[in-house]
């Protein structure tokens, strides 16, 4: 009944969103952004036993300009924050961020002058993967959750709106707000 019967064989109908999302989610290229212990588990995820290539992700890009997904694996120190933000800004849209491990998500067992209490204060995070470090299965689960998230996105209205690109001169990490702590250790009110 209707229009479908008139369509010859070999033609399928879909929405543009569904097709674009299908293409996007099957070729997510992660930026190999290993910082600390979690980076080793991220490497295990790529390596023999867990083999992330099954999900179309075997290429870890070393350049942010060729990557769509940033896996922040490890603790983010205050010195690393501007670097992290700059790498994120260099990634082309659409882009996603997975915060891998307790340290990247909330500071983990470290809560002191050197460690950022969560990478979500620097870049928008899509998926948090808990664990110290998370098992490769957990990371894969996080990636599959990201796929589900990508499926719901629309070409017209991306879920994450990116602010206008910042100029290279200012240090982007500071724009997003580095907390100022006084040396006596008290929190600034």
């Amino acid at each position: 009944m209707g229009l479908e019967e008139k369509i010859p064989d070999g033609i399928a109908l879909t929405t543009l969103d569904a097709m674009v999302n299908w293409a996007r989610k099957r070729s997510v290229w992660p930026l190999g952004f290993g910082l600390a212990c979690c980076a080793i588990e991220m490497m295990s995820t790529i390596a023999s036993r867990f083999d992330m290539a099954r999900f179309g992700m075997e290429v870890m890009r070393s350049s942010p300009r060729q990557a769509d997904l940033m896996i922040v694996a490890g603790r983010v120190s205050n010195k690393m924050v501007p670097v992290l933000r700059r790498l994120y800004d260099q990634m082309p849209n659409p882009k996603w961020v997975i915060s891998m491990g307790a340290c990247a998500s909330c500071g983990g067992i470290f809560n002191n002058y050197a460690i950022k209490q969560g990478v979500d204060r620097v870049v928008p995070v899509d998926i948090y993967v808990p664990g110290c470090p998370p098992r490769p299965e957990q990371l894969i689960d996080g990636i599959l959750m990201l796929y589900k998230k990508i499926e719901k996105e629309s070409v017209k209205r991306p879920l994450i709106t990116q602010p206008n690109a910042q100029t290279q001169d200012e240090r982007p990490g500071e724009v997003s707000g580095q907390p100022h702590r006084n040396p006596s250790g008290e929190l600034n009110k």
């Binding site: 910082l35 600390a36 490890g74 120190s77 010195k79 690393m80 067992i109 470290f110 002191n112 002058y113």
Partner: peptide, 22 residues
């Protein structure tokens, strides 16, 4: 220093056995 964690300082504030995981 891009991974400076302040572990030595943090250990000075913790009981001995609590420093072990660090």
């Amino acid at each position: 220093g891009y991974l400076h964690t302040g572990i030595e300082k943090e250990m000075e504030t913790k009981l001995y056995y609590k420093s072990l995981p660090m």
